[in-house]
Design a protein around this nucleic acid. Sequence first.
DNA 1: TTAGGGTTAG
Length: 523
Amino acid sequence: MQRWLATTAKRLLHRCNNLPQKAKPRTHLPSSSFYHRWARASSTAIKRNPNDAIELFDKMVNSRPYPSIISFTKLLTSLVKLKRYDVVISLSKKMETLGIRNDLYTFNVLINCFCSCYQVSLALSLLGKMLKLGFEPDKVTLGSLVNGFCLKNRVSEAVSFVKKMVEFGYGVDIVAYNTIIDSMCKSKRADEALSFFNGLEREGVSVRPNVVTYTSLVKGLCNVGRWSDAARLLSDMIKREISPNVVTYSALVDAFVKNGKVLEAKELYEEMIRMSIEPDIVTYSSLINGLCMQDRVDEASEMFGLMVRRGCFPDVVSYNTLINGFCKAKRVEDGMRLFREMSQRGLVSSTVTYNTLIQGFFEAGDVDMAQEVFSQMDSPDIWTYNIMLGGLCDNGEVEKALVMFEDLQKSEMELDIVTYTTIIHGMCKAGKVEEAWGLFCSLSVEGVKPDVVAYSTMLSGLCSKGLHCEIDALYLKMQGDGLVLNGRKLCLRDGDITVSAEVIKELLTRATSEGCEKAVSLL
DNA sequence: TTAGGGTTAG
C-alpha cells in the first residue's frame, strides 16, 4: 500500500505541475512613527534581552502624548515572538492602569498570549470584554481561541466554540478549522479529523480547505497507517486544484521514512526536483534520518553533503540527526567531529545534541569524554542527568554517580522516577541493596510515585539478596499502588499489558536464576 | 493567524 501511495503520489503530483500559482500579496511597509521605528530597530537587542523591551516601554509611557497604540502593539508583538507571554500580559496591565486603550489588534495579541500560556478562561473573559466595548472579534481572535482550546486538548470545546461563533454570524476562517484538524491528527485521532473534515464538506460550511488542511490530514493518516485514505485525500486535493507544496512533499517523505520505506522516500525526493519544488532543510533531515535508521550512516553523510551542494545549509536539527546516526552506529568520534564543525559554523548546540553525544560516549565506554562533553553544557536538563547517572553506573563508576545524585538532591532540579530508579539500580548492582531500599522507601516523602519499572528494579535487588521481609513490604506497597495480583499474572489497573509482562519476565528470571522462593510465591 | 525534520533514561 505504501508503494502504491508513492506511485499514486508521483502520478498525481506530476499532473498538477502546471496548476496556476497564486500570486503573493504585496506586503506593505508599516507606518512610521518614531517609536515604531525605534521598536523595530531595537528588536535585535530585545531578542537578546527582553528587559530592553521593558525599558523601551517605560520610555514610551513616560512621553507625552503617548505614542500611538500601533507602536505599543509592535513592541508587544516582538515580545510575543520571543514567547514572553508573561511580560506582554504584565505590560498590558500597566497600559490599562494608565488608561491607554486597547484596539482590536492589542486585544488579539493579548488573547493569543493567554491562550498560548494555557489560560483559555482568561482569554474568553477578554473576549467578553471586547464584545462589551463594541469590538467585533475577527478571524484572528477566533483562531487564537480555537488554538487555546486545542493546546489544552479541549478539541471538542474548540469544535462547539466554532459552531457557536458561526451561529452568531462571526466569520470563522479556514485557519480555525485547520487548527482543529491538526490538533486531532497530532493526538493520533486521524479518524476524528477525517470525519470532522467530511462533516464540513457535507454541511457546506462556507470555507474551502486549503493546502494546510490537506497536508495535516495526509500526514495524520500516514502516521496511523491509513495509507489508502491518505492517497485518496491526496488525489482529492489535486482534483480540486490545490497544489501540494514542499511541506506536503516533506510530510510524505517523512511518513515513508518512518515506515522504513527509504527507497520510496528517495523517489519522491527525485520527483520533487523534477517538478521544481526545491527540497528544503526539513526534507533533507527526514531523508538523513531515514538512512540513519537503516544503519546507512555513510549514505546519510553523503546526503548531508548533497544538501550543502544544493545550497541548503544544515541547522542544529540536521546536524543532530546525523550525529545521532553516528552515535547509534558506534562511531561517536565521527559524531564529535560534526559537533565541533557545527560550533565552528556558529550553530549553537542544543541540549538534545549534548545528550545524544554523552549517551554515545558512555555506550562506547568512554567515561572521560562523556564527562568532558557534560562539563561544556550550560543548562543540562533532567534527561542529561539521568543519562549521566545511568552511564556512570553502567561503566563501573557507581561512587561518582552517587556523588552526583547527592548534589542533585540538594539542587533545584526536579528529580523524576527515572532518576531514582537509575540510582537504585546502580546501588543494587554495587551490592548496596539496603541503601537502595532506604531510598525507595523515601520516595513517597519526595512526592515521587514508583512505577512498574521502579518496582521491578527494586524487587530484583531484594531478590538478589533474599531479603524476605522487604519483599513482603514491597508487595504490600505494590498492591497499594494499583499493581494487583491476578492468578499467575501481575496486571496494572490501567491494563498496560506490555509493561506488566516485563515485570513478570523479570520476576521469573530472578526467581529461577537466584532461587528466591518468595519471588516465586508472588506469582 | 493554521501544516513538515532531531535526542531521551531506569
